[in-house]
Simulated assay, not measured.
Amino acid sequence: MSNSSRMRSIFRRKTSRALDKLDDPREALDESYDQQVRMLQQVRQGLAEVATAKKRIELQGQEMGLRYQRLANQARDAMEQGREDLARAALERRALLEGQVVALRDQFSALQQQTARLQDNERRLAERVAAFRIEKETIKATYTASEAQVKANEAVAGIGSQMNDVGSSLARARDRVAQMQARAAATDDLLTSGALQDLTAAPDADLERQLSEVTTKADVERQLQAMKATGAPDRSQPNPPREGPDAWLSIGGAQSGA
Rank of each mutant, 00 (worst) to 15 (best):
A116W: 03
R183E: 14
Q223P: 00
A186H: 08
I251A: 10
A232E: 07
D204I: 00
R235F: 07
R38G: 11
L199Q: 12
V50Q: 02
F132P: 00
T215K: 12
R70M: 13
Q255K: 06
M7Q: 14
R176A: 14
V220T: 12
D204P: 00
E213V: 05
Q197A: 11
E80Y: 03
Q179V: 02
R183C: 04
L86N: 02
V150L: 15
R235D: 10
R242V: 05
E135L: 10
A130D: 09
S32C: 05
A254M: 06
L29N: 09
A173P: 00
Q74G: 00
L191D: 01
A247D: 03
P233I: 04
E213T: 07
D206I: 02
E243H: 06
A254W: 09
A103D: 10
V129Y: 03
A72C: 01
S2Q: 04
V50C: 04
R67K: 09
Q149G: 11
L40R: 08
N121K: 14
I57W: 06
D20M: 07
L29Y: 08
R222Q: 06
Q255V: 09
R70A: 15
N73C: 03
S168N: 12
D20L: 11
R94A: 07
G99T: 14
R172N: 13
A229Y: 01
A145S: 09
E63G: 11
A178Q: 08
Q181E: 15
G252Q: 00
G257R: 09
G167N: 13
E98F: 04
D175E: 12
A95G: 02
Q36C: 03
D188E: 10
G253N: 12
E147I: 04
L91A: 07
L19C: 04
S9C: 09
Q149F: 11
R117S: 14
R12M: 04
E147K: 15
E147P: 00
S9Y: 07
D189R: 14
A90V: 01
A202M: 03
Q162R: 12
E154K: 13
Q197H: 08
Q42Y: 05
Q60T: 07
A182Q: 12
F11N: 08
R105Q: 12
L207I: 04
K217A: 15
S161Q: 14
R235G: 01
L199H: 06
M39H: 13
A90P: 00
R222H: 10
K54V: 00
Y68C: 07
R88A: 08
S4C: 07
A258W: 03
S169P: 00
S2G: 14
A130I: 00
A185V: 03
R242A: 10
G99I: 08
R93C: 06
V166A: 13
D30A: 13
L97M: 04
S146W: 11
Q113M: 12
L91V: 06
R209W: 01
R235N: 08
V214A: 14
